[in-house]
Simulated assay, not measured.
Amino acid sequence: MFKMGNAMTTNQKLEKSAQIAQAALQLFKERAFDEITMAQIAKRAGVAKGTLFNYYQSKENIFMNLLLTGYQTYFSELARRVKQLGQLSLPDFKRLMLQETTTLIEDHAVLLRLNALRGPILERKADKAQTIVGRQKLYDISQQLSQDIAQRVDCLSTETINHLFVTQSAIISGLMNLSGLEQFDHEQIPVGLFDFQVAVEPEARQIFGLYMTGLFKEQKADD
């Protein structure tokens, strides 16, 4: 017979879901995605495997949730910092975006690793409906952030700023994907492939900086 005393409140369910997600995140910091199993996640979270499946139907679902909520948190934190700023010139805004490029690479490496898995791996088995809801929330946060920035940078539109965040992500992801060409399975290839080595942070800043310089010149020309 079902007992009301055993029923979990909404907050308790959210806490349990977050507990499971954090356990998966800790495992992801220690090993590759394909080495992680649902059984390992359940054990790390301290829950039964059956309980785990009540919250997430696949590990792809867990990590897609971590990816989307991770970016939601990052953009929300950036929005709070932006609200403390006054008006920004284009050079000021460029410096801000380059600093955020460094922040993403140095302080959010796990989030960037997850982002690299999104298209080729996570979307295969992640729940489509939940992913759409998560993306809509991320879009709304990003849109508000871009609007706040546009109010401080006179000559840039919300659309342009949104586009810059997408471009920033593409540059970082592309460089991260290419950063291991001189290695195989994390071991150095014993031949001279030194020109394949990629320094992600400085090269991302350089490429993104050049892109913004060209874009801002076009903006001024159009004005």
Rank of each mutant, 00 (worst) to 15 (best):
I189L: 15
M4A: 13
L156Y: 09
T167M: 14
Y71R: 08
D34E: 15
N11S: 09
V153T: 10
F216L: 15
Q84W: 02
Y74N: 08
L210S: 09
N177T: 13
T102Y: 05
Q188M: 10
L164S: 06
S157P: 11
L114C: 04
G86L: 04
K59T: 02
A45T: 06
D127E: 15
I121G: 01
Y211N: 10
E60M: 03
G192F: 12
L114D: 02
S89P: 06
K29V: 08
L88Q: 11
Q22Y: 12
Q72W: 00
I161N: 11
I207K: 14
M212K: 10
Q87I: 12
L52N: 00
S76Y: 02
D127Q: 08
I105Y: 01
K125F: 13
S173H: 10
M97E: 11
F208S: 06
V82L: 03
K59Y: 05
G174V: 01
L98I: 15
S17E: 04
R113H: 05
L178R: 11
L68N: 06
T160G: 03
L14S: 06
F194D: 13
F28R: 11
K137W: 00
K217P: 00
Q219A: 14
A39C: 03
I149C: 03
L114F: 05
L193S: 02
A32H: 07
K59S: 03
M4T: 12
R152G: 06
L52Q: 04
R118T: 05
I171C: 07
